[in-house]
Design a protein around this nucleic acid. Structure first.
Lengths: 300, 300
DNA sequence: CTCTTCGATAGAAAACGTCTATAGCTAGGG
DNA sequence: CCCTAGCTATAGACGTTTTCTATCGAAGAG
C-alpha cells in the first residue's frame, strides 16, 4: 500500500470525482484511477461505487475513510514535527548538569533559551558530573554541562573555567588583607562542601600539592549551606566563583586572593554522545546559544 | 514519502540494525538502506546516527518516531476494519423501516442478526415509507424495509407480503361467522390507524374499488392503540397480520375472513441505493439473513 | 592480524508508475 | 433520436525507481 494511493482515495472521496481530484493532485486522471484500482485490489474489495456522476464511497470505503485520514495526518504531523525540531521552534530538550552549574549558571542561560525558543520544553537533571555522564550514556539526557571528564563515547566542548575563590565573612582578619598565603589558609577553619563531589578531591589534592594539610572543620553536601556557614563565621571556604557572585556583590561575603598559589580552576564542558550524529533542533540551538555566549559572562 | 520507507524506519529503529531489519522485512540490506536514505533525503536530515554497532536514532528520528508509528498503525487498523467489515464481524448497520415493520417484524430479525454478528452496531430509523426513502437517498440509512415503492435511484428486493386482515373483538357478531361480506364490513364501525400512512390510502381505495364506502368512526396514529380500541369493542379494524399475530394467538382478537373480496396485501420490500455498488460487510450479511429467512415466517 | 559484522556503494535487471490517447458508458439537450 | 458532454476505464509506450547481487571499507573481537 502506498501513501499516494491513500491520498488519492481521500481526495476522490472528498470530491466524488476522479478527474477533479487528479487535477487537484497534479496528476492525470488515469494515474489516479490506477492508484485507486491498486488500492482496491490490495484491500480486496471496492472502496468506491462507480456511477454516471462520479465516484461514491461504498460502505467499505466509508469504513476505511477515518483510518486513511488518520494515517495521512500522522505523516503530515510527523513532517511538521521535524521542521519544528529543526528550527527548534518546538520540541524537547533534556539537559544534565552538575549541581554548581545547575544552580548558578544554568538559570541565566535557560532564561535566554526559553525566550528565544518558547515552544521547546526544557528539562534539567542535576547530579554529580559522573552521574550525569551515566545519564548521558543511558540517553536520559541529550546534553550535559559538567566538569571536564573523559569517556570514549562522548565528545566534550569547553564551556568556561570556573575559579575556586577563597571567601571569608566580613570582619574576618583576612578580609582586610590584600592577599593571604596558602599556609594561612590551611591553618584556618575550612568548610568544605560535598565530600562526594569532584570539588572535594580537587581541593584536597590542591593543598597536598602545596605541601600543606588543611584543617577541616566542617563538610556539607551543598553550596548554599556552605555559604551560610561562612556568613555565620563558622569558617572560611573555597567556593566556585559563580556560586558566590551574589554574596560578593552584596558584601555578605568577601573574596580574598591567595597570593602564593595558582588560582584553582575547574574546567566546565558541555558533553554529548559521540554517536548521536550532528546536533539538530533544540540541541543544536542550545549549543549555538552557548557558543555565542561570552564564556566570562557564564562564569560570572 | 512511501509507507515502505516509514515501515523500514520503524523496523530499523526497533532493531538498531539494518541487516536484521531487512531480513525481518524480507528485503535485502541494500534495499532497506536505500529506503532509509530516501526518507532522510525527503525530510532533510538524518534520522539515524550510523555507528560501529549499528543504527541509533538521532533526536530528529526520535521526534519522528511516534508519528511514524501512528501512521503505520492507522493503515494496519484500517485494513483490519475492512476485514472485519467484510466478514461483518464488526462495523455498523443503519436500517430504515416502516412503522409496522419496525415494530412487528424487525425485532425477530434483529435478534437473529445480533446473535450472528455480535460486534456489529445496529441502528434503526423508523418512519413512513416515503420518509424512509428520503433517508436512504440522503444516505442516513444504508438499507430500508418499507412498502413497495419506486424511485430511479433505488433497487428493491421483495421481502414478504403482508396481508391486511379483519380483526374483531371476541364476542363480536362476526367472530362466530366463518366469513363475512365486504358490505358487512363497510357497515360496521371501522377503526383506521394512521391517516398519513400508505395503509390508509390502500384501505380506502380498496373499499372504493368494491363500490362501498366505509363508515369511519375512528382514526388513530399507531397500530398498538388501534388494537386496544378493537379489544375494547369500539369497532373493528383491518390490520397487518404481523401486527396482530400475538393477539390472535392469545385470543384477545379474532380474525374474520372476508369472503367476497381478495385478500388485501401490502408488498414489503428491502430497498437500497442503486449507486452503492455490491453490498458488503454488515449490509450484505443482513441481506443474506433476509434472503435465507422464510418469507412466511417474517410475515407471521 | 585475521575474521566477522556493520552500513554504503556500484551496476544491471526488473518492476512500477505515469503519461497520452482513446474507448465505453450514460444523461441531458437540441 | 441523435449528439454532445462528462464521467471512468483501458491500452501501450516511456522513463524513472526499486530491487537485486556483489563488493567495498571501517572497526571491533578473538
Amino acid at each position: 500500500m502506498l501513501l499516494a494511493q491513500i491520498e488519492g482515495f481521500l481526495e476522490v472521496a472528498r470530491r466524488g470525482n476522479v478527474s477533479r481530484a487528479a487535477e487537484a493532485m497534479f496528476v492525470t486522471q488515469p494515474t489516479l484511477t490506477a492508484r485507486l484500482h491498486a488500492l482496491e485490489r490490495e484491500v480486496g474489495e471496492p472502496l468506491f461505487a462507480r456511477t454516471r456522476r462520479g465516484m461514491r464511497l461504498t460502505d467499505a470505503g466509508r469504513a476505511f475513510l477515518p483510518y486513511a485520514e488518520r494515517a495521512i495526518r500522522a505523516v503530515r504531523d510527523g513532517k511538521q514535527a521535524l521542521v519544528d525540531a529543526r528550527s527548534a521552534s518546538a520540541g524537547r530538550l533534556v539537559l544534565g548538569a552538575a549541581p554548581a552549574v545547575s544552580t548558578y549558571v544554568l538559570p541565566a542561560i535557560l532564561q535566554r533559551f526559553a525566550a528565544a525558543y518558547p515552544r521547546v520544553d526544557v528539562a534539567v537533571r542535576t547530579g554529580h558530573s559522573e552521574d550525569v555522564l551515566q545519564m548521558l550514556l543511558r540517553e536520559e539526557v541529550q546534553l550535559a554541562m559538567v566538569r571536564a571528564l573523559r569517556h570514549p563515547d562522548i565528545e566534550s566542548t569547553p564551556l568556561y573555567e570556573e575559579a575556586l575563590v577563597l571567601v571569608v565573612p566580613p570582619g574576618h582578619p583576612f578580609a582586610e588583607r590584600p592577599k593571604v598565603g596558602i599556609a594561612d589558609v590551611a591553618s584556618e577553619r575550612l568548610i568544605f562542601f560535598d565530600r562526594t563531589s569532584s570539588y572535594y578531591e580537587l581541593t584536597q589534592s590542591f593543598f597536598l600539592s602545596l605541601g600543606v594539610t588543611p584543617r577541616e572543620v566542617m563538610e556539607l553536601d551543598n553550596i548554599e549551606s556552605t555559604k551560610k556557614m561562612v556568613e555565620r563565621k563558622l569558617g572560611i571556604a573555597l567556593l566556585p566563583r559563580s556560586a558566590v557572585a551574589g554574596e560578593l556583590a552584596a558584601r555578605t561575603l568577601v573574596q580574598v586572593p591567595v597570593g602564593d598559589a595558582p588560582v584553582m580552576t575547574q574546567k566546565i564542558v558541555v558533553i554529548r554522545r559521540r554517536d548521536q550524529g550532528r546536533a539538530s533542533g533544540p540541541v543544536a540551538a542550545f549549543l549555538n546559544l552557548l557558543r555565542d555566549a561570552d564564556p566570562a559572562a557564564l562564569a560570572s
